[in-house]
Each structure stands twice: as structure tokens, then as C-alpha cells.
Amino acid sequence: MQIFVCIKQVPDSGQIRVHPVTNTIMRQGVPTIINPYDLFGLEQALRLRDRFGGEVTVMTMGPPMAVDSLRKALTYGADRAVLLTDRVFAGSDTLATSYALSNLILKAGETWGAPDIVFCGKQTIDGDTAQVGPGIARRLGLSQLTYVSGIDDMDLTDRQILVRRRGDHGVQVLRSQLPVMVTMMEGSNEIRRGTQADALRAARAEVVKWNAATVGIPDVSLCGLRGSPTVVKKVFAPTAREEKAEMVATTDQSPVAMADALINQIFTRQPALQDDLLRQAAGH
């Protein structure tokens, strides 16, 4: 079977710093990682390949440096990696991103065989939108299975797939028909440690590099900034509340004295809360 896994290279969020004066993101030296949510899809893809046979192709759209993330995915055991990189994609919002990626998937499908499953991350840690997976599913007419907590069964002959999907108030057990687009819940598996053989292969492997022309994007005006209906009008740090926090200070620095002063301040500001707490305590 053919399994495609879409990944994104993202800044390691723990490392992002905002410049205290200019309020801009300090990108210098911020390490990048594969979006952690994508790894649950990659591991699931590898498990399905190990069980049913076939190939796992990882792909991403991004700047040339995104090749590092693809190579990392190869070390986990993916069979092939494809990078779609082109200036026309710069500034894409989720709609333009799903347009580019769905065309990348079509081209990869023509080249290596149409995918039975396309995995996407549940969301990214930098954008947090969860919109690109559904976008790809709609554009390619794949059945959309988001927030999947487990794939229970699959039958390649009658092309059925049985999954558990994490809903808001419970788990849906769904049966669908391949091809499907799946996003996996975090914690549904753990990415394997790649073998040494995979690490060696990844180091030597050639990552396939395509651009808008080689993929044959039908309409470049639907890409990048031009193809994005949403426009970021401003980026800003939230302003402090006009009234600064009232700082409680005590001459006696003992925890007991500080606790007392703090509670006085809380009850002065919220007398109703004090009454309710007392009533609640009395009722016990």
C-alpha cells in the first residue's frame, strides 16, 4: 500500500523568545524540529507498512532547510522523502497550503502510486489551526478522519478501515473507505527509535526536490500570499492592563504575615466571594 505522511518543520516552541523591546520574534539560533503531532501519524504509517507491506513517503512544503526534517523522518524508517520548495509558496495561509500540498500529493501519486492513506498532524505547534489536514481531504476527495486515537483494522481487498475517533464527549467507532486522510491524536503511539541501517540510509538518501513547475501547479495565483484569503494585519504583544497589579507588600516577610495580607486584599476586592466562602464553610 502507499502511505503519504505530511510533516512540517517548526521552531522548537520551548525555544521561542520575544524581543523585550521590539516585540518581534527572535529567530536566530532557534532549533527546528518535526512538528511533534506529525510523529504520531508517521509512526502509525510505519506500523501499517510493517503489517500490510508497501511504502511510506514523507513530504513537506517549506524552505530548502526543511530537508533536515525530511531526513530525520527517513531515520525513523520512512522509505522516501519529498520536499516541495518554491518562492511562490511564501506567505501561504492554510487554504493556500492545502492547495499546494494536495497538488504535491497528486504528483507523488502519479510518480509512485496513489496513496491509500494520507496522514497529517492533528495541528502544528506554531500555527495551532488544525486546518491543513481537512483542507487536503476536501481538495482530494478523501474521507476525513481527524483526531483518530487508533486504527483497529484495515482490509485492503474491500478497502475498508476501522478507526476510533476522539470526539468531544466520547469515542466514535467509524468505518470508512480508502482512500482516507487521517490525523492521529497525541499519545496514540510513540515514534520508534530508528535502526542504525535506517540512519545510514537516511544520511545517503536523496531527498526528492520539486518546485511549483515540476509538480505542475495548475494555478500559481492560488499559491502563497496571493492565494491566501486571510491577511495578517498586525502582530503584537498584548498590552499590560492599564491598572497594574496591586502589589501586596508586608514589613514582616514571614509567609504567615504575607498570607494574611494577601487574603485581606482578596476579600477587600471580592467581598461577595468572602461571604459565599463563609456560607459554604458553615454549611459543611
Binding site: T129, A130, D168, S228
Partner: peptide
């Protein structure tokens, strides 16, 4: 922006080819 709302909004916005802002 629940599991349902996110699943639905992403699909509807793509079908309509319009903009969607999450969260």
C-alpha cells in the same frame, strides 16, 4: 473551536475557498 467545530470548519472553509481563523 471544539473537536467537532475544528473538523467541520476546516472542511467547509476549503470547500467554499474562503478564509478561516482558528481559536
Amino acid at each position: 473551536a471544539t473537536v467537532l467545530g475544528r473538523d467541520l470548519a476546516g472542511a467547509v472553509a476549503t470547500t467554499l475557498k474562503t478564509g478561516l481563523t482558528a481559536d
